[in-house]
Simulated scan of single mutants.
Amino acid sequence: MSVLIKPVISEKANEIAEKRNRYTFLVDTKSNKSEIKYAVEQAYGVSVVAVRTLISAPVVKSKYTKTGLQVGKTNKLKKAMVDIQEGQTIDVFGNI
């Protein structure tokens, strides 16, 4: 199973990448910081300084229909913000 799922491409993530040299990835929910660091170093050939992780809870939504109350939820997501060494960059848009 791959630790890195995909890079997060948003206005906020791109701004942080330009200003602070910090890139954001969606990662496997069972991975830890050392696995994420190793995966980024192997995939992109950069040296990682620090890894920050956060887990976003599933969103529960409900709606009323003819058949009754329908309840659904999204999946739990884990994001990792990776600081890389000064002077190095990751080409996020080259893999699209």
Rank of each mutant, 00 (worst) to 15 (best):
S2Q: 12
S2K: 12
S2G: 09
S2H: 09
L4K: 02
I5P: 02
K6T: 03
P7A: 01
V8F: 06
I9V: 15
K12T: 00
N14M: 01
N14Y: 06
E15M: 14
A17Q: 03
A17T: 07
R20H: 12
R20N: 14
N21V: 03
R22K: 11
Y23K: 02
F25Y: 08
V27I: 09
D28V: 13
S31W: 02
N32Y: 10
N32H: 10
K33D: 07
S34G: 12
E35V: 12
Y38T: 01
A39V: 09
A39F: 06
E41V: 07
Q42C: 06
A43C: 00
A43G: 03
Y44W: 00
V46T: 10
V48E: 03
V49D: 14
R52G: 03
T53E: 14
L54C: 10
L54F: 04
I55V: 15
S56D: 15
P58T: 09
P58D: 09
P58E: 03
V59F: 15
V59E: 15
V60C: 10
V60H: 15
K63P: 05
Y64N: 13
T65P: 11
K66Q: 11
G68E: 04
V71M: 06
T74Q: 15
T74I: 14
N75Y: 08
K76G: 01
K76V: 13
L77M: 04
L77K: 09
K78N: 00
K79L: 13
V82D: 06
I84Y: 04
I84Q: 08
Q88P: 09
T89W: 03
T89Q: 05
T89H: 07
D91I: 05
V92N: 02
G94E: 06
G94T: 05
N95D: 13
